[in-house]
Structure formats: structure tokens, C-alpha cells
Design a protein around this nucleic acid. Structure first.
Lengths: 227, 227
DNA sequence: ACTTGAATTATGTCTAGACATATTAGCCAA
DNA sequence: TTGGCTAATATGTCTAGACATAATTCAAGT
């Protein structure tokens, strides 16, 4: 009846009820174990989970205290575009608009940590949902991560090929709002200057930088997260 | 020398090296424990961490397999606006532009799960960074969560008051790009129709819905996340 | 062929005890 | 007062063994 999840819930309840206000030191694991009638390891499991969630802060010898400004974290599950579209109940398709090798523009090489002028694979892909433009993907890809012969990105989207074939390790995403460039307006069939949600992503792999992507989302697109 | 973190790292290495390709069943905890010369609980700790990270999928009796499409999760730490501004090395300030009680617009009441026509506190706050408009915050606040007498939101921004005084439990955020409304353009000193990054957030507390906020960010604003 | 139930098995969790490690508090000496 | 050593202490992790739980397999029985 008293598993670690129940103990986590009870501790969380006390914090929310301000029995233990922000900044307060809460009882040690030993004391809580005795109170709940479980082993210390069980209390430890519960408190470790709360610490990972940012609700409490733990330090050896100093004890466990309730976080002052509990950091609110939201998690975004970065979707594979095809599955995102299918999940909305729409038919998925894509068109490869450009595929060439050219030197990386300076800001992009810089963000990936590659030397200026490095030749990179440049791909422009229009993703379609229900036959209509959904996302315009502009991608620079480090050719060093590609096998020989390279995959055919007209058959499998680069997005998906990378997820299944390259071990991505870390990266960052940034969201901004920008007016559609003339190229974006033309390709997506929009008035120039339309407000677009832009996601820019850089990705690092085990063997160095992998890719920089700019995703221009069709008007009305929402990126939703929960916490 | 062989703690759970090292075991986690070694298992992750094998997955990345495709010793265990996506979809493959990996050896059971017992077998791994024997191989690494540790107790099963130690292997369990390592695999539990990898499962939380989305790298593997575990089911009782069926065993542990490498995730086919490892879900990439990015974490966003939702900032208190004041600290966000200060963190950019700019002076923070805010102006309370509106503060009144009025019935909630239908879509907003619906998103919070409150009855239509429910009277709510409406607040409009312009946050300033270095004296320039940074974010226009439009907020509907459930008066049931406020103490009596209610706090003075001209002195402490609602944003900050809520973080420190209400136990927020769950919610969601969505990002969109929208052209500035006439009101937004006027208040922020922009041309109407300027592309703005909009964040909409609903928050639920222990005692019911708390607040709906719309944040209109000044042009050029980036919301960055890492994974 | 189909359904039902039992045996099997891998993960999930718990216990009691142990040692490791980080950090603090207190003490003593320069 | 300051610096550094030492002891105390709370969390971190590990072990060996146990039982719980979910899911699959397989053998009956209809």
C-alpha cells in the first residue's frame, strides 16, 4: 500500500499544502522511512524522482529542501514530420525542391562549429499535409555523416533518414516568428511577409556536427507542449 | 568502478554503435548483471534511466528493446520574465496597462474549463527590457485563487506573484506566429501586422483552473531549448 | 478453430544492511 | 582572526534476496 509513488505523492502534497514551504528543510530519509513504515531506499526513490522534477533540491550532509522558485519545465517531443502529419489525420507527402552540394554560409558553419566554406549537402524539402504545404524544410547536412553511396533523399525524407540512421546526441532548437521570405511565400503559396513560425535546429552527433535545419511552418501552426 | 551511470553509458554506447540496433531485444537484467559483475538492481537503475530518456522501451515479461524511433525530447525552462530580462543584461520594468474584472471570453473560459460568462480578473502588462517593449502579457485570472484582499499587481507582476504564491500543478504552452493586432502594434510601437512570436499558456492549480496568458514577444525574440 | 486457464518469465519494486562521498560544524593552532 | 584538520551526518549507491505484476506461451477443453 505504500509504494514509492505514493510517498512521492504525499511529499508533493505536503509541499503544495505549504506544510513544507519553499526553502524549508524537510525531514531526512531515515525519519521519513520510519514515518511511512518503509525502507530508506524507498523514500530515496521517491525523493530522487522529485529532485529530477525540480521540486526539491538535495545535497549530501546539508539535507533536502523545497525549491524556492520551482523551475517550471515543459517537455517538447520533437516529432518526425511525417508522423506529425499522420497524427493530425492528414495524408503525408513531400517534394524535394533542391539537393546540391555547396559551401556552407558563414553563420551556419559557425553554428555547427565547422570551418568556413566547408562543402555541405543543401536540401530544400516541402512537406505536405493533405496535399497542402505544411512545412518548408531548409537543411544543411555535414557530408561526413553520410554513407557511400549517400541515401536518396527523394525517396526518404532527410528528416526521417537521420533519425533512423545517425545517432543524434545533443542539439538545440529555437523558435522565432518571421515574415515569409519571397522564396518561402512562393513555394508555400503565401503572401510575402506572412507571419511564419520558424524553428531552427542544430544537431551534434557522436562524430561531430550533423545538421542545421530551418523549418518554416504554415500559418496557423501551433507547437504545443505540456508541463 | 562499475556504477549505474557507467553501465548506462556502456549500454547507450552499444545502442549507438548498433551492436543492438533499433527494435532489437537486449539481454535481460540478470544477464547484464552477470556480465558487468554487479547486482541486478544496479542494472535496473541504469535501464530505468535510459527508459525515461526514451532510448529503450521496457515491458514486463516481454523484455527490453531499443526504441525504433527514439523520441527526441527538448526541455524548456519556462522563465520568470523579470529574470529572463535580467539574464540578458538589461534593466527590467513593467507597466500595468489594464486591470479589471470582466466575464471571460468564451474560448478562454472553455480552455480553462470554467463556465461561460465567469467573471475573471483581466490584466494587461507590458514588460520592458532596457526601457523598450519586451513582451505584452494579456492574462485572464481565476479570482477564486486570489486571497482577500487581492494583491496589488501594479507593484508585483502577476507573473511573479503566481509563481511564488500559487501551487501550479500542470498546464500547457503553445507557440504560434501571428501578425501583430492593432492593439499590440500600438502598445509595442510596431507596424501593424509585424510577425510576432506568441506563447499561449493555460495553468491548472490544485484548486482548479488558475490562469490563461497570452505573451506577445517583441520581434527578434527567440525561445531556445536544448536536448 | 476458438477460448480458457495455468505456467513461465522479465521487469518492477521492496527490504535490510553496508560502504562511499560530499559537506558542514567544530576545534585547534598559527 | 584565519586556516586547516577532523568528526559528524545526510544523501548516494550498492548488494543479495524476496515477492509483485504484467504479458506471453502453451496446453487443454470445448
Amino acid at each position: 500500500m505504500t509504494g514509492w509513488e505514493e510517498i512521492r505523492a504525499e511529499v508533493l502534497r505536503r509541499i503544495r499544502a505549504r506544510d513544507w514551504p519553499p526553502g524549508a528543510l524537510i525531514p531526512g530519509e531515515e525519519a521519513l522511512a520510519e514515518e511511512f513504515g518503509v525502507a530508506r531506499a524507498t523514500v530515496n526513490r521517491a525523493l530522487t524522482a522529485l529532485a529530477e522534477a525540480g521540486v526539491i533540491e538535495r545535497r549530501k550532509r546539508a539535507g533536502t529542501r523545497v525549491a524556492e522558485l520551482p523551475v517550471r519545465r515543459a517537455r517538447l517531443e520533437i516529432p518526425v514530420i511525417r508522423l506529425d502529419v499522420l497524427g493530425r489525420g492528414l495524408a503525408y507527402g513531400f517534394k524535394l525542391l533542391a539537393d546540391r552540394v555547396e559551401p556552407a554560409p558563414v553563420p551556419i558553419a559557425a553554428r555547427l562549429g565547422l570551418p568556413e566554406g566547408q562543402p555541405m549537402r543543401y536540401l530544400e524539402t516541402l512537406h505536405l499535409a493533405g496535399g497542402r504545404p505544411f512545412v518548408l524544410e531548409t537543411r544543411w547536412l555535414n557530408p561526413a555523416v553520410l554513407p557511400d553511396p549517400p541515401p536518396d533523399f527523394a525517396a526518404v525524407s532527410a528528416n526521417e533518414w537521420l533519425v533512423t540512421h545517425v545517432s543524434l546526441v545533443s542539439g538545440d532548437i529555437a523558435f522565432t516568428a518571421e515574415p515569409a521570405t519571397p522564396r518561402e511565400a512562393e513555394v508555400m503559396g503565401l503572401a510575402p511577409g506572412t507571419a511564419l513560425l520558424i524553428a531552427e535546429r542544430t544537431t551534434q552527433g557522436v562524430a561531430g556536427p550533423v545538421t542545421f535545419v530551418r523549418l518554416a511552418h504554415a500559418p496557423g501552426h501551433r507547437v504545443a507542449m505540456t508541463f
